[in-house]
Simulated scan of single mutants.
Amino acid sequence: MTQPGPPQPDPHPQPTPRGVRGGQPVTPPVDRPVVGSYPTYEGAQRAVDFLSDSKFPVERTAIIGSDLKMVETVLGRLTRGRAALAGAGSAAWFGLLIGLLMSLFVDGIGNVLLLMLSALLYGALFGALFGFAGHAFTGGRRDFASRSQIVASRYDVVAEPDVAEDAKNMLIKLGWREG
């Protein structure tokens, strides 16, 4: 008869399921109590930073934006010339990177500089051509440059239920104010 030995580790361990920390279920962020509400993301971020500085377990908090909207800010008119210039600028950096990588295989500082300069110029040239052509092929359907961002009308700092009251009290007691 053989004696049972020490328990062997499971050869096929199961990953920890989502929503579980240390064997305990974790409340999804949207169902957590609100400990503070702020009109800007920066305000909510500063509140969490304040909690962190106060040694609060911020890994048990989240920032939730509500009433989301997409805002597209028009930066200006986009002409074929501006499209070519933008293409030249971004491709010049790529050309410089390629030149830098190729310079590892070239002897002499003069050859390295010549290689990097020509890679930069070729990148800018081809980028300008592609930028110009890309804008020309749109047929004038989008003759403006813009930047898009998602913004919320309110940002709530939430915490897991068992620490939410502590977080709220900490923000109040230690005199944290947004601003």
Score class of each variant (00 low, 15 high):
residue 113 L to P: 03
residue 91 A to N: 04
residue 115 L to I: 02
residue 107 D to L: 01
residue 101 L to S: 09
residue 90 S to E: 03
residue 82 R to C: 01
residue 92 A to N: 01
residue 89 G to I: 02
residue 100 L to R: 10
residue 105 F to K: 14
residue 98 I to K: 06
residue 109 I to K: 11
residue 82 R to Q: 12
residue 111 N to S: 13
residue 84 A to M: 02
residue 113 L to V: 14
residue 93 W to C: 15
residue 116 M to R: 09
residue 89 G to C: 08
residue 97 L to G: 05
residue 104 L to Q: 15
residue 104 L to H: 13
residue 116 M to E: 12
residue 114 L to V: 13
residue 115 L to M: 06
residue 91 A to T: 02
residue 85 L to M: 11
residue 82 R to S: 07
residue 80 R to I: 08
residue 111 N to K: 07
residue 93 W to P: 08
residue 101 L to E: 11
residue 113 L to D: 11
residue 112 V to R: 14
residue 88 A to C: 07
residue 88 A to G: 05
residue 90 S to R: 03
residue 85 L to E: 05
residue 79 T to M: 05
residue 89 G to E: 12
residue 90 S to K: 03
residue 86 A to G: 10
residue 106 V to I: 11
residue 90 S to G: 12
residue 93 W to M: 11
residue 91 A to Q: 03
residue 90 S to L: 05
residue 100 L to P: 05
residue 107 D to R: 15
residue 97 L to T: 06
residue 96 L to C: 08
residue 87 G to H: 00
residue 97 L to P: 03
residue 92 A to K: 00
residue 86 A to P: 02
residue 96 L to H: 08
residue 104 L to W: 13
residue 102 M to C: 10
residue 79 T to I: 08
residue 105 F to M: 15
residue 82 R to A: 05
residue 105 F to C: 12
residue 111 N to C: 09
residue 94 F to L: 12
residue 111 N to T: 08
residue 101 L to M: 14
residue 88 A to D: 01
residue 80 R to L: 14
residue 110 G to N: 13
residue 97 L to W: 04
residue 108 G to N: 08
residue 84 A to P: 02
